[in-house]
Design a protein around this nucleic acid. Structure first.
Lengths: 245, 245
DNA sequence: TAGTGGTCTAGACCACTGT
DNA sequence: CAGTGGTCTAGACCACTAT
């Protein structure tokens, strides 16, 4: 059975995007099975009444997502399984919500402080200036899961404590019109200090998973620095990544 | 001063690729400074004697790498600093070599074993079949840094012990014509068992950084499963990631 | 040899941004 | 308003793969 593909030329949605969405959906719910050939681009273009470059643009976006593989002289195939969510800059809040965990957040500190030297350097603000400092405890099923300490440049965002407890920091930034662009991350481990252990209901010396991250918007400004510790029995970093071609 | 860009039409290298390489080099060594505008695509195409789609393809590849940002009605700008190496599927060996650490490898085990259930599932091989098991100790400056246990499907690769000590597993796979496509990773932490501690010259109960990874080639086959432990005082995962638009 | 994707052209119109 | 990128067309020729 051939796939039922259609495009709506009166829609404001770009034609290539309409097509890539339909192809992705077909892969998602199994109408296009792994390993199956997509049919050549010229014929596909003719069938849809599109030009070949437009069809190629749609296919290319799915190749970039890792869903399709192109082979010259062979055709375009659906990748065999496995690819689900390529790595993205997700917040812990979103991760937990996606896992159906109803995350709870307790804001411990939400204040303006003089920027420590390391933070000032990471955020690119003057050393004698102020930065926002937000400390939060993230809970799942009533148990502490992570301690999140974040610094933000002043004036970027209205850091309402109520909103911080109801949603995630990244979601708040996006709502404020900040376009996240890239982040630099470091993931490590260390033994919990007495203070850290108490915050997370662990024993002193227990292993903790740690992450430092600086996030940049599309103008290159650093918009956030985070220093997080996670209970490794409750959380690990899971992600999929694509090999750059 | 305007940038000196040229393309060689007699070269087998695609024109868009020649252009993107030159732009990337110009960004790299500062001829194009962060925030500077690239000049509009039509004019750039005319200057180079290329068509606009070709110029767009070159620019788009750098946007995908995170080096450029496009804004409708504004222009194409060089991103402000920070982006150096987007996340790639690197081997520990390559990481260390890039850091100038002359990594040493000691192969502890290199044998064929009946596939444990979990490994068979991860690699997609029959449960009663055999798989390669490779255990290695990675050293830097004579000190153990990581213990790497990898499983590979049989018949994929000639796992020469000498080569394993001289280079990395990924490099061997690429040399064997395997096209790496994607990987699923999980990074966590736990306390070292007595056996793990001894291997890595740590105390039992010391925090360890752990990583499990399944790697797939472009046909969707699992080509490797790895179960690694790292000394967190000697190693952490550092990477940069781009926000999917 | 036939069929595929890879590259390239020379236009066109639209949507958005800034002044 | 002028200028930018975003989308789209209807072709063309080439390189690679399989048979």
């Amino acid at each position: 059975m051939t796939l039922d593909l259609r495009v709506d030329r009166s829609s404001p949605v770009p034609l290539y995007f309409q097509l890539s969405q339909q192809l992705e959906a077909a892969i998602e719910h199994g109408a296009l099975t792994p390993g199956s050939l997509l049919g050549n681009e010229i014929e596909l273009a003719a069938r849809l009444g599109l030009s070949r470059p437009t069809v190629r643009q749609a296919i290319q976006s799915l190749v970039d997502k890792g869903l399709l593989v192109r082979r010259r002289g062979v055709g375009t195939q659906v990748v065999h399984s496995q690819v689900k969510r390529p790595l993205e800059l997700s917040s812990l809040f979103d991760d937990l919500e996606a896992a159906g965990q109803r995350p709870a957040t307790k804001v411990l500190v939400n204040t303006l402080v003089p920027a420590p030297a390391e933070i000032a350097a990471a955020l690119g603000v003057p050393e004698d200036g102020d930065v926002h400092r937000v400390e939060r405890l993230r809970l799942a099923h009533g148990e502490p899961m992570a301690y999140l300490c974040n610094y933000l440049p002043p004036g970027l965002l209205d850091l309402d404590t109520g909103q911080l407890e109801a949603t995630g920091l990244y979601r708040m930034m996006r709502s404020a019109g900040i376009t996240l662009h890239s982040a630099r991350q470091s993931i490590g481990a260390r033994a919990a200090t007495a203070v850290e252990a108490e915050r997370l209901a662990e024993q002193a010396g227990a292993p903790l998973l740690t992450m430092q991250r600086t996030t940049f918007d599309d103008t290159g400004r650093a918009v956030e620095f985070g220093d997080h510790t996670y209970r490794p029995t409750r959380y690990s970093f899971e992600f999929q990544l694509l090999v750059r071609p």
